[in-house]
């Protein structure tokens, strides 16, 4: 039964195969406040070669007669679709159709969704005419619309809605490391500083500095002088260790020990120095 049914439909389809939707007497006109704009005729064979310019205060009017199998008739679906080619976003504009198929639609610039109004590429307009029953509908591109942006009007910004997805990578920018001056300059100053030591020694020698009383002092107080001078050198050694590896709590007790040695041996050693001074030998 069902098979028979479908056969019947097939037969009906074959009989009506010639019947398709189409349109005739189609015009598109742009009316602007400045005066009548372009008016073009178009047909279903091919889209208009030139694009229609739509300014921000203009409106676009499309007039046509919808026909089924060559006779004027009202289709259920009569839409002008405007499509933004880069995103594929579409906006339908239904035509108002009379019984005899005369259809009209007026699209103002302000009717365009912001995404289309902000488009920089020409919008593709297509016409869909279709209805119930077996008659075949048509879906044909008719023309392109150039949405003109006026230089002194506030630009239309189509904000992208928030969508979950991956975000751009972020790599932290580190602050630059502290920089040293060129090593050559540092070395010049190192040499300049080190040169003061021989300069000092030469100065002292010309003034007659000497160590002639060393044996005398050692003979007079060998232990005291040894420990006293040794502790002064050791103190520098402690400072070096503090710089190199020790912490303050390791350093302080050693300073205490070395300092005590300096103090105790110092009374004797400096007494010997005083005795030489009193003897008029300094």
């Amino acid at each position: 039964m069902r098979f028979l049914h479908s056969l019947l439909f097939l037969a009906a389809g074959a009989a009506q195969a010639a019947s398709t939707w189409g349109f005739d007497d189609a015009t598109v006109s742009v009316s602007s406040k400045k005066g009548a704009g372009a008016k073009e005729k178009f047909n279903e064979k091919a889209p208009l070669p030139q694009s229609i310019v739509l300014g921000s205060s203009d409106s676009l009017k499309i007039l046509l007669t919808a026909k089924e199998g060559g006779k004027g008739k009202r289709p259920h679906q009569a839409f002008v679709m405007l499509q933004e080619p880069t995103t594929g976003l579409e906006a339908p504009f239904p035509l108002t159709v009379k019984d005899n198929g005369k259809a009209v639609v007026e699209i103002k610039h302000s009717d365009l969704p912001t995404q289309l109004a902000a488009s920089t590429t020409p919008l593709k307009a297509s016409l869909i005419l279709a209805s119930f029953g077996a008659a075949e509908g048509i879906n044909k591109p008719i023309f392109d619309i150039d949405v003109a942006t006026e230089p002194n009007a506030t630009p239309i910004v189509a904000e992208k809605p928030m969508r979950y997805g991956k975000l751009d990578d972020i790599h932290h920018e580190f602050r630059a490391d502290p920089k040293s001056p060129p090593k050559v300059i540092s070395l010049v100053f190192v040499l300049a500083v080190l040169a003061t030591v021989p300069a000092l020694f030469i100065g002292w020698l010309t003034l007659g500095a000497n160590v002639s009383h060393l044996s005398k002092a050692i003979n007079a107080a060998p232990l005291a002088h040894g420990v006293f001078f040794g502790s002064i050198v050791a103190m520098e050694g402690v400072f070096y260790m503090y710089y190199a590896s020790w912490n303050l709590f390791q350093t302080l007790p050693v300073i205490g020990v070395v300092g005590a040695a300096t103090f105790l041996s110092g009374t004797k050693a400096l007494g010997e120095v005083q005795s030489r001074r009193l003897a008029g030998e300094r």
Binding site: L194, G208, A209, V211, I232
Partner: peptide
């Protein structure tokens, strides 16, 4: 380094120098 060297040399000279 220069200061440390100078200090030790000064101590030596002060302790053991005979009059010029």
């Amino acid at each position: 380094g220069a200061t440390v060297t100078g200090w030790l040399a000064f101590c030596t000279v002060w302790l053991y120098s005979a009059p010029a």
